[in-house]
């Protein structure tokens, strides 16, 4: 490599490296450190190690003053299950539509892909506000039930509302990778499978699902990651039963002012995300190596 080329690479990479090194890595290192420190009496921290930040979540109590209660663990598990449910619902909704759009003539395909990405650009808070209106007991959904002579279900401020809201805002994330995979599906294989006497269900399970697996996995990962740490959706649409770990983090920072505990909770979210990402990329690399 010539010195000139080396200089060019340094000049091109320096701004991002410096900026992200300070303002992206810096914050992550600081909360990693904070999650191990003792909370001060009036906010702030004392520089001694404190096990109770993580202990309170996972049950590392000293057995004298501290009593472990699984309430935080329960909220963590709930967040994981909400994330998983959001992924499953998104997948169920997007999969058939991806097949339908993949079979359309080119012009129409472009139009419908555009229509799927468009709501993504209409502000997040606006889209959640829309569901707040719809789910209100006096709102359109409630009125529809009343008109049919039924008792309107209590949807707002429930776990179902949180999952519905997350599905609605994350649908484009699931759809685009899924569509790419469905679009690349080898039709000849599907036809061959049917010709050889496989039932539609067998063809689906043995041919279609394995062939589109990269899209399913990719879409699931990029829906699950923002869903599991979400706090805006449960804040607007969820009640006490819809509280997620993101809400806990927000509370620790903006109302309880227990920054070390909030940092520990954030580290847990980051841990979950890293596990998912590493599993996904290593599996994807392995699958790529096999092919």
């Amino acid at each position: 490599m010539s010195p000139r080329e080396r200089a060019r690479i340094v000049v091109l990479l320096a701004p991002a490296t410096l900026f992200l090194g300070v303002f992206f890595l810096g914050p992550l290192v600081i909360i990693a450190v904070y999650s191990l420190l003792t909370p001060g009496l009036y906010g702030g921290v004392e520089w001694t190690f404190y096990h109770w930040n993580f202990g309170r979540i996972f049950g590392w109590a000293d057995g004298i003053m501290e009593v472990f209660q699984p309430v935080y663990l329960r909220i963590l598990l709930r967040s994981l299950s909400f994330g998983l449910l959001t992924v499953l619902v998104c997948l169920t909704l997007c999969y058939p539509v991806a097949f339908w759009i993949a079979r359309l003539p080119q012009r129409w395909r472009m139009l419908f892909l555009f229509l799927i990405t468009l709501p993504f650009f209409a502000s997040l808070i606006v889209r959640l506000y829309a569901w707040l209106l719809i789910l209100k007991p006096s709102g359109p959904l409630g009125m529809a039930f009343t008109a049919l002579g039924m008792e309107p279900p209590e949807l707002l401020y429930s776990p179902a509302a949180v999952i519905l809201g997350m599905v609605y805002i994350f649908i484009p994330f699931m759809f685009l990778p899924l569509f790419a995979a469905v679009d690349n599906l080898d039709r000849a294989l599907v036809e061959a499978s049917a010709d050889l006497g496989a039932t539609p269900f067998q063809t689906f399970r043995k041919i279609i699902v394995p062939q589109t697996l990269p899209g399913i996995a990719g879409g699931s990962v990029i829906v699950f990651i923002p869903a599991v740490g979400n706090f805006i959706v449960p804040d607007i649409l969820g009640g006490a039963n819809g509280l997620m770990i993101g809400n806990l983090v927000e509370q620790q920072f903006l109302s309880s002012r227990n920054w070390p505990f909030g940092s520990a909770l954030a580290m847990v979210i980051m841990g979950v995300v890293l596990v998912v990402l590493v599993t996904f990329t290593s599996r994807a690399a392995k699958a790529g190596a096999v092919r």
Partner: peptide
């Protein structure tokens, strides 16, 4: 890929 809330509070503390 970093969850918004982690980066958000990280920046706040920073």
């Amino acid at each position: 890929m970093m969850p918004d809330i982690v980066l958000g509070i990280g920046l706040l503390v920073f």
